[in-house]
Every structure is written in C-alpha cells, then in structure tokens.
Design a protein around this nucleic acid. Structure first.
Length: 199
DNA sequence: AAAATGATCCTT
DNA sequence: AGGATCATTTTC
C-alpha cells in the first residue's frame, strides 16, 4: 500500500479522522521499524472547539503547526510526562488536529515491549492510549512538525472501514470544555480489543 | 514573575 | 482516588 497523500489530509477533519481508522501508522526510527493499525482517533477542530488547542484560533509556538497544511505531525507533552501524537488535518488556516489514541501493534512488537515495560507481555497494553502508543513507537516532540508525506513517520493507505464497523463516542478527559464535552468526535473500530479504556 | 493546568498513565 | 512531573498558558 502507498502512503496517504497531502490531498487525503487536507479535507474536513471529521472525514479524515474516520477514514484514518484501519490505516497503518509507521515509524522508521534508528532503533527499528514499528507499525500498527489505527483503531481509535479523536478530532479537535479549532477554532470553534473549546477542547482544542486551537480554540479561538489560538496560535502559539506550540500550536503553530496545526495552522499550517494538512499531513504534518503535531506532538506535544502532556502532564509533564507523556507525548501525544496528532495528525494535522485540513488546509492552511483551518487549524484541525486528530489525536491518535490507539493502534493495534503489527511490526516491531519486541521493540515496543522494550520501550514500554519488558515485564508486561500483554500486547493489548502496548498502544492502547495516546501516551502509550507514543512511548511504544518512539514518538517524541523531536518529531513535532515533520511531514507525514516523508519517510520517517507516515500512514499507509488501506480500504475504507464501513460505517457499520465504526463506533463514535464523546471524547475522553475534556471535562473542562463546556458544550464541546458532548460532541461525538471520538471514532473507534467496533469490538477492537486494542482501543483505550474508559467510558 | 508566579501560579495554574492538563487531549495521561500507573499504582493504591 | 491520588501522585508523578514540567512545558505551556494564564494571571498578577
């Protein structure tokens, strides 16, 4: 399969979020190659989304990549300890980010286990959360702002998942976001055992 | 300049 | 239910 193109990313964030399900995220690191199937994605659609880092078009050193073209990576530190990986969607001037919350590990499972917790042999615990998958795949803020149409971090195309196989729920841990708390912008592959916990 | 705050995870 | 841990944002 081919890498997803700029055109794929530069569309409405909700459509891109949904269509990312079932695609394969790949990281070619110096330690080795890791990959996995995206099974859970949340959309953060600034400027009208109180949960988004680009709410009211907020532009800062951290969020500037979200304001640029689609198909770039946005990686930020959360709670002083964990990285979160997002795919930037839509065109320049439409600041939308898609948080990859869980993947189903495919390649480099041994390396993922080593990076996470060598004592835990349960592969369900490897990438079932945004901080966990970044740790397992070696994604850090060094990769913030890189082009997903490049050769280091990218997503391979795959057939679209049918609506009947997709579930939507409100987003996780955004209780501060007022009205936006209820928006059904979390997309998951139904009955997939590798999604994150909660709700 | 100082204080508050997380798009989390793990342990109790 | 609470703590770890710190860059970023908000407030003074």
């Amino acid at each position: 399969m081919k890498k997803l193109s700029r055109e794929f990313y530069e569309r409405d964030g909700l459509a891109v979020a949904k269509e990312l399900l079932g695609k394969t995220l790949v990281h070619e690191s110096s330690e080795g190659r890791t990959s996995g199937i995206i099974v859970e994605v949340e959309a953060y659609l600034g400027p009208g989304d109180a949960a988004a880092h680009t709410y009211k078009n907020l532009r800062s050193n951290r969020t500037q990549v979200i304001h640029g073209p689609g198909g770039f990576s946005y990686v930020y530190l959360i709670y002083g300890m964990y990285n979160c990986f997002n795919v930037v969607a839509n065109i320049t001037g439409r600041p939308e980010a898609l948080l990859i919350r869980a993947i189903e590990p495919v390649e480099g499972i041994q390396l993922m286990t080593l990076r996470r917790n060598p004592a835990d042999k349960n592969i369900r615990n490897l990438c079932s959360g945004p901080g966990k998958l970044c740790q397992a795949m070696g994604i850090t803020r060094i990769l913030n702002g890189i082009d997903l149409c490049g050769d280091i971090l990218y997503v391979l195309n795959a057939p679209i998942i049918a609506d009947t196989e997709i579930m939507t729920t409100p987003r996780i841990n955004i209780d501060y976001a007022g009205e936006a708390v209820h928006y059904p912008w979390r997309y998951l592959i139904k009955n997939n055992p590798f999604v994150s916990r909660k709700k």
